[in-house]
């Protein structure tokens, strides 16, 4: 690999890192501060919902649902006995 090629590749990486820094440290936080987005984020937080959850076990709200179902099942079994 030539010196020029190495420099070009390093500059490419630094350029991408700079773009990412602007997006993650400036644009996204600014978007999060906007009134509509802030309310939406607060609502998601209150509901216990992480929209990026990949599987049901990663979802806080699912824990609440399953806990309710478990309590209902145990009460039903206790009443049956």
């Amino acid at each position: 690999m030539t010196y020029d090629s190495q420099v070009r590749k390093t500059l490419s990486l630094l350029g991408v890192i700079a773009v990412m820094a602007v997006v993650w440290l400036v644009i996204l936080p600014a978007h999060a501060r906007q009134e509509a987005m802030r309310k939406h984020l607060e609502w998601l937080d209150q509901q216990g919902i992480d929209p990026s959850a990949m599987y049901y076990t990663e979802l806080e709200v699912m824990e609440d649902i399953l806990r309710r179902q478990r309590s209902a099942q145990l009460l039903s079994e206790a009443n049956h006995e």
Binding site: L44, P51, A53, L59
Partner: peptide, 19 residues
């Protein structure tokens, strides 16, 4: 497709729909 997105969309419709 995504589990988290299902919950987010369901919650828009209310607690029953979410569950």
């Amino acid at each position: 497709d995504s589990t988290g997105a299902v919950a987010a969309a369901g919650a828009v419709l209310g607690d029953e729909a979410l569950e």
